[in-house]
């Protein structure tokens, strides 16, 4: 069975101040039906750009996108104009970074459902109202919310509305880009468990993007980690307790855990992420890497460690790291 989303060799260039800057380079991953893939990385690592590129939301005058993005087997990057417009939201819906601003402030909630349904050919307002009420019910909001304006809702309610909107056309894929950053922890937990339930119920796939690796490890099925515009490691959640890339290892360790002693917490990664206009030669992580060696002067390939479950890593020394792991842990 083909994956819902198949991304291969994706790259993105931004045009900024007359220069062309590569912000995403050689990104490949796939999401199976009903699967939730977590994409993690520091701010500026390019993870949100991947989301915008996959959803075709980068403006051609601001950015160029290349590589392959297939949604259910069809080439999504090749779509233009009316064809692209009609495919949007049916194939891929978006729950964007801040729910606070994702709703149009001057029209009520029903009209934000209605205009989208109308744009996709559902023109019966009475039916649309029923549909919108059903969708709100899915996210535990009462029908009256339809008559409210965004400013009359709380942050958590707005995020639920946005999720209900995303479900409207039964998309195969929902991209969630930092969907809960603006919410407090309790609301965040409520909403994420709701998303999990709905996913089991409705069977859509999710690309979940966040800088919070800890959250991903608890929530998703598989995780991919980005550094400086490239994927550095991907694998099932369980894999990351023995991750093979020095960057992912440092990330996992930099998270506080209830089982750790305070002194062990937040070791952090010395150094800062590279300036993408002058990325380091060879491996982009080598200036900050504790395993750095001569071989790191040449760029490492995106290499599969195992096919099923898929584990891939971008590090020339992953074998040595794995062996060291085996010797230290066992």
């Amino acid at each position: 069975m083909q994956p819902v989303l198949h991304v291969e060799g994706l790259w993105v260039d931004y045009f900024t101040r007359g220069r062309r800057l590569r912000v995403v380079q050689d990104v490949s991953f796939a999401i199976e039906r009903g699967e939730m893939l977590g994409l993690a990385g520091e701010s500026g690592s390019g993870k949100s750009t991947v989301a915008l590129a996959v959803a075709r939301l980068l403006r051609p005058e601001n950015a160029a996108v290349g590589g392959m993005v297939r949604l259910n087997g069809t080439d999504f990057l090749a779509l233009v104009g009316e064809g692209l417009r009609q495919t949007r939201w049916k194939s891929v819906a978006l729950v964007s970074q801040s729910a606070m601003n994702a709703l149009n402030p001057v029209i009520n909630i029903f009209r934000q459902f209605d205009d989208m349904l109308t744009a996709h050919g559902y023109t019966d307002a009475v039916q649309n109202r029923h549909r919108a009420a059903e969708l709100l019910d899915l996210v535990d909001l009462p029908e009256q919310v339809l008559n409210r304006f965004p400013h009359q809702l709380s942050g958590g309610m707005k995020q639920r509305v946005v999720i209900a909107l995303a479900l409207a056309l039964h998309p195969d894929l929902i991209i969630m880009d930092e969907p809960t950053t603006a919410l407090d922890v309790i609301v965040e937990r409520e909403i994420l468990s709701k998303v999990k339930t709905l996913q089991r119920q409705l069977g859509f796939s999710v690309l979940f993007i966040t800088h919070d690796l800890d959250l991903l490890l608890r929530l998703t099925d598989r995780v991919a980690i980005m550094y400086a515009g490239q994927l550095v490691e991907t694998g099932p959640v369980g894999h990351f307790s023995r991750s093979l890339h020095p960057y992912s290892r440092a990330l996992v360790q930099s998270f506080p855990s209830l089982h750790q002693h305070a002194s062990d917490r937040r070791r952090g990664i010395p150094g800062a992420p590279p300036d993408l206009s002058h990325p380091p030669a060879g491996c982009r992580f080598h200036p900050r890497c504790v395993f750095v060696a001569d071989v790191c002067q040449t760029a490492p390939a995106w290499e599969a460690v195992s096919e099923d479950p898929l584990i891939a890593v971008r590090c020339s020394r992953w074998k040595e790291i794995r062996d060291e792991f085996v010797s230290t842990v066992d």
């Binding site: 964007s96 205009d115 744009a119």
Partner: peptide, 20 residues
Amino acid sequence: EDYVVMAEAKGLTLRQILIG
């Protein structure tokens, strides 16, 4: 603004996005 990006993602027509 996010709601305009969202409008485009929703597959609204150019008219809907620009005016509404």
